[in-house]
Design a protein around this nucleic acid. Structure first.
Length: 564
RNA sequence: CGGGGCGUAGCGCAGUCUGGCAGCGCACCUGCCUUGGGAGCAGGGGGUCGGCGGUUCAAAUCCGCCCGCCCCGACCA
C-alpha cells in the first residue's frame, strides 16, 4: 500500500481520554477510534494487526483439531433460562426485547448456544470428541470499560468448546487446548505465563489463565522460579507460618480514637505497628453477613473467602449494614461483643496476642484484645493474599509476585451445562450420559493491546514481527524522481516477494515520516533519502533495536527475508 | 454502583473564580519556499462553548435538571 492512498490518521498529541500506554498508542497510531464507551472501530492499520492475531489463533485451533463455526450474537432468553443464567448472570448480560416482545440478549459467551447446537446433533460416543470454535464479537455490558480495547464492552473473542465422553477425554481436549495456547502466544511474540486460575462465574473444576507479563496488568501472579509453580494470586495458597513470641495477656482497654479509622491512621495514632492491629472486615455472602479478621498489614483474598463459604459472590458490606451489625460507622468494627454474625479469621491472627481492634462504637478502639478471653476463638482459615517472598505452596522457596494481562482462559466445565440443558449421548453400552465439556477463550483485541503494552518505547509501538500490520515501511525522504523511482522499485520487489510493505510516498517532510514510522511500529524501515543520492545505498532500520544497515537496493529483499 | 475529575474548532488546551466581541498551539485549505527527525512566510476556512430550563440589559462564565466521557474500587477475554 501507498501511504498517500491509505487511511492512517495519526495523532501528534496524546488524546486526553487515554491513560494506558496501549490505549494511547493505538489511538495515536490510527489503529482504533472510539464510538461510545467501550465500543471501538478498528481502522485499517489496527484491523491488519487484529487479523494477524486472529489468523495465528485460527491456524493453531485447526492444528489442534478444532472446527470453526460462527454462532449468533443475538440469543433467545429461553436458552439462558435453561441454565439459570438469565437471572443470575448480572447486568453484564445486555437483555432486550424484539418487536414481538420476546426476550433476547447479546451473547457475552456462548455455552448455551453451543450446547444447544451439539445436543441436537450429537447422539453417540462415536461423534466424540468434538471441539468447536469461533472468532466472533461478544458483548458484555461492563460496569466500567477501561483502557480502550483492553476491556471493551464489544470485543472480538475466540471461544472454543470441547465435548467428550468422559473425564479422561476432557483432560485430553484440555491438554490439546493448553498446548495450542502456548503455541499461539509464543507465535504472537509475547512473554507470557500460564497460571492456575479461579473458575469464577463460568464454573468448573480446573482452569488456567494465560497472562501476558506487563507491569500495567490488572492481575497479580504468584510465580516460583524454583519449581515452576504459577498461579493467579487470587487462589495462590499461603503457606506462610505465623508465629508470635509468648506474651502475657494484658487487661483489655478502650481508647478514644476520634476520626481515626484506617489501619495506617490507627497504628500511627497509637504508636504501634500495623501488624499489631486486626482488621474486621464485613461481607455480605449469600443472605448472611460474615466478619473476617485479618492482621492489619495483610490483604484479604475475597476469592478464597467466596470459595470457603461456597457462595457465588461476596461483597463488602455497605455502610448501612456495617452500622446495623456493629452499631458503629465504618472504620470501628471489631470482634468483641459482635453478635449475630459468623466470625472467621485468617491464619495470621492465630497466636497473636494483645492486638488492637475497633470497639464497635464511633471514635473508639480496643487495645490488648485477645481471642478466647474477649471473644470466642474464631474459625481459622487461609484467607490472605500471598505476597512477594512467601513460601511457594509446592516447594517452599520464595514466591515472586508480578503483574499480568489475562489474554486467554481455559476451563474444565464438566457436565454443568450439559446436565442443565440435557445434552447427552449414548455410550458404548447404550447408556445415556451427559457430555463432558470444556471451554477456552482468547481475547483477540486484548491480545493486540497486551502486545503493545509489552512492546513499546517513548516513540511508539514496536510490533513483534508476527503480528505487525506490515513487515516493512519504505520512507522516501524527498520528492526527487530519483528517490521515488528507486523506492517504487523496492516497494514492488518486496511485495511481490511476499514481504508486506507499506510505502510512505506522501509529500511530507522527513521528520513527519520518521515520527509516524516509529509511532506505528512496523518492524523494518527502509529509508531512501540523501544517503542514496550520495552512495547508492538505502538504509534499513530495525524498529526494535534501532540498528541501521546500509544496503544496495537489490540486497533489501534478501535482508528482510533472511531475518524471517 | 460508590468516590474523584472533565465536557469550549479534528486534536491538545486557555477563558469560567470576578457575566460584557469566543481565543491559542497543532491539524486543515491556497500560494511561495523547503526535504535526514513533527520547517518557514503570507493568506484563509472551521464553533448549537455537551443538552434543556432559569436568573440577567447581557451567560462559555451564575443557578437547577439531564446527558456523555475519563480516572480509582468491586467484574472479565
Amino acid at each position: 500500500m501507498k501511504l498517500s492512498e491509505y487511511f492512517l490518521p495519526t495523532l501528534r498529541e496524546d488524546p486526553a481520554e487515554a491513560e494506558a500506554v496501549s490505549h494511547r498508542l493505538m489511538l495515536r497510531a490510527g489503529m482504533i477510534r472510539k464510538l461510545a464507551s467501550g465500543i471501538y472501530s478498528w481502522l485499517p492499520m489496527g484491523l491488519r494487526t487484529l487479523r494477524r492475531v486472529e489468523n495465528i489463533v485460527r491456524e493453531e485451533m485447526d492444528r489442534a483439531g478444532a472446527l470453526e463455526v460462527l454462532l449468533p450474537l443475538v440469543q433467545p432468553a429461553e436458552l439462558w433460562k435453561e441454565t439459570g443464567r438469565w437471572d443470575n448472570f448480572g447486568k453484564e448480560l445486555l437483555r432486550f426485547k424484539d418487536r414481538k416482545e420476546h426476550d433476547f440478549c447479546l451473547g457475552p459467551t456462548h455455552e448455551e448456544v453451543i450446547t444447544d447446537l451439539v445436543r441436537r446433533e450429537v447422539r453417540s460416543y462415536r461423534d466424540l470428541p468434538l471441539i468447536l470454535y469461533q472468532i466472533a464479537p461478544k458483548f458484555r455490558d461492563e460496569i466500567r470499560p477501561r483502557f480502550g480495547v483492553m476491556r471493551a464492552r464489544e470485543f472480538l473473542m475466540k471461544d472454543a468448546y470441547s465435548f467428550d465422553a468422559d473425564e479422561e477425554g476432557l483432560n485430553r481436549s484440555y491438554e490439546a487446548m493448553y498446548e495450542a495456547y502456548q503455541r499461539i502466544f509464543s507465535r504472537c511474540g509475547l512473554r507470557f505465563r500460564a497460571v492456575l486460575a479461579d473458575t469464577g462465574a463460568i464454573g468448573g473444576s480446573e482452569s488456567h489463565e494465560f497472562m501476558v507479563l506487563a507491569e500495567t496488568g490488572e492481575d497479580r501472579l504468584a510465580l516460583c522460579e524454583a519449581c515452576g509453580y504459577a498461579a493467579n494470586v487470587e487462589l495462590a495458597e499461603s503457606k506462610k507460618e505465623f508465629s508470635y513470641p509468648e506474651e502475657k495477656e494484658r487487661p483489655l482497654e478502650k481508647v478514644a480514637t476520634p476520626g481515626v479509622k484506617s489501619v495506617e491512621e490507627v497504628a500511627a495514632f497509637l504508636g504501634v505497628p500495623p501488624s499489631k492491629l486486626v482488621k474486621t472486615l464485613l461481607f455480605r455472602a449469600g443472605g448472611e453477613v460474615v466478619a473476617v479478621l485479618i492482621r492489619g498489614d495483610l490483604e484479604l483474598n475475597e476469592v478464597k473467602l467466596r470459595n470457603l463459604l461456597g457462595v457465588p459472590e461476596v461483597e463488602m458490606a455497605d455502610a448501612e449494614t456495617v452500622k446495623r451489625v456493629t452499631g458503629a460507622p465504618v472504620g470501628f468494627a471489631g470482634p468483641v461483643a459482635l453478635s449475630g454474625v459468623r466470625i472467621l479469621a485468617d491464619l495470621s491472627v492465630r497466636g497473636l496476642r494483645n492486638f488492637v481492634t475497633g470497639a464497635n462504637e464511633a471514635d473508639a478502639h480496643l487495645v490488648n484484645v485477645n481471642y478466647g478471653r474477649d471473644f470466642p476463638e474464631p474459625e481459622f482459615y487461609d484467607l490472605r493474599v500471598v505476597s512477594e517472598g512467601d513460601p511457594c505452596p509446592r516447594c517452599g522457596r520464595p514466591l515472586a509476585v508480578t503483574r499480568g494481562i489475562e489474554v486467554g482462559h481455559i476451563f474444565k466445565l464438566g457436565t454443568k451445562y450439559s446436565e442443565a440443558m440435557r445434552a447427552t449421548f449414548l455410550d458404548r453400552e447404550g447408556k445415556e450420559r451427559p457430555l463432558v465439556m470444556g471451554c477456552y477463550g482468547i481475547g483477540i483485541g486484548r491480545t493486540v493491546a497486551a502486545a503493545i503494552e509489552q512492546n513499546h518505547d517513548h516513540a511508539g509501538i514496536i510490533f513483534p514481527r508476527e503480528i505487525a500490520p506490515f513487515e516493512a515501511l519504505i520512507l522516501t525522504l524527498g520528492p526527487e524522481a530519483e528517490l521515488m523511482e528507486i523506492s517504487e522499485r523496492i516497494y514492488h520487489t518486496l511485495n511481490s516477494s511476499g514481504v508486506e510493505t507499506l510505502w510512505d510516498d506522501r509529500d511530507e517532510r522527513p521528520g513527519v515520516k520518521f515520527k509516524d514510522a516509529d509511532l506505528i511500529g512496523i518492524p523494518f524501515q527502509i529509508i531512501v533519502g540523501r544517503r542514496f543520492k550520495e552512495t547508492g545505498r538505502v538504509e534499513v532500520k530495525e524498529r526494535s533495536t534501532g540498528q541501521r544497515e546500509d544496503l544496495l537496493p537489490e540486497e533489501v529483499v534478501k535482508r528482510l527475508q533472511g531475518s524471517a
